[in-house]
């Protein structure tokens, strides 16, 4: 197994590029759904101490909506799409054709819509991933929770925590043109999956 602590700059670059294309695909998909321009930043690919991951999204007690998908295949991973609460409400209003500011809590239909967004973004992301790596990755059906960021991130971090103290996080931030929506897309490979991905892109 590739030791996660010893990724070379070239390997990190390769992962960043995969993340970039994947996120680009996802951003395009999201943009088409809500008919707004979506900006994204250059993906952060970083090994971070797991206890600091919640700080990436505003601290462990920030209220967020998380859509979680488990990814199956040769390189099992977790996908987590996190939206601050106000972004999630804004997105739901956009999707449902309601005036912004209408949504104060999520009903089952709203939750379903957000899950579907998570589904579409993940599909777009994983397609790009496949083009690079030829590793087929199949996402599970999405699950949704609205709660404290720390609590939601626990789900992916616990899995990593079994193996080490650091998480490889491929993270992209999305921003809609009117600033109403910002979201964070995390792809977190299982500890053993990293070497599979690195091999597949041929930068061992």
């Amino acid at each position: 197994m590739t030791d996660e602590l010893s990724l070379t700059p070239i390997q990190l670059d390769a992962l960043r590029e995969i993340g970039n294309v994947g996120a680009g695909n996802s951003a395009t998909a999201l943009s088409q759904i809500i008919n707004k321009r979506i900006d994204m930043n250059v993906p952060k690919v970083a090994l971070v101490p797991i206890e600091t991951v919640p700080d990436l999204v505003g601290g462990p007690d920030a209220i967020v909506v998380g859509v979680f998908l488990r990814v199956y295949g040769r390189a099992p991973s977790n996908i987590l799409f996190l939206l601050p609460q106000h972004s999630a409400f804004y997105l739901v209003d956009t999707l449902m054709g309601r005036e912004h500011g209408t949504t104060k809590r999520l009903d089952p239909m709203d939750e379903s819509a957000l899950k579907e967004i998570g589904n579409i973004l993940s599909g777009a992301y994983l397609n790009a991933f496949f083009n690079f790596t030829h590793i087929a990755m199949l996402p599970s059906i999405p699950a949704l929770a609205m709660d404290m960021a720390g609590a939601i991130l626990n789900v992916v971090l616990v899995q990593l925590g079994q193996m080490g103290d650091q998480a490889l996080v491929i993270e992209t931030e999305f921003l809609a043109e009117d600033d109403g929506i910002n979201g964070h897309f995390f792809l977190v490979p299982d500890p053993g999956s990293l070497s599979t991905i690195i091999q597949a892109v041929g930068v061992e």
């Binding site: 919640p54 601290g59 462990p60 007690d61 709660d147 404290m148 960021a149 720390g150 609590a151 939601i152 991130l153 626990n154 789900v155 616990v158």
Partner: peptide, 10 residues
Amino acid sequence: SLISYGLGSC
């Protein structure tokens, strides 16, 4: 006082 934020499965 001691405080810890955002426990899920923890």
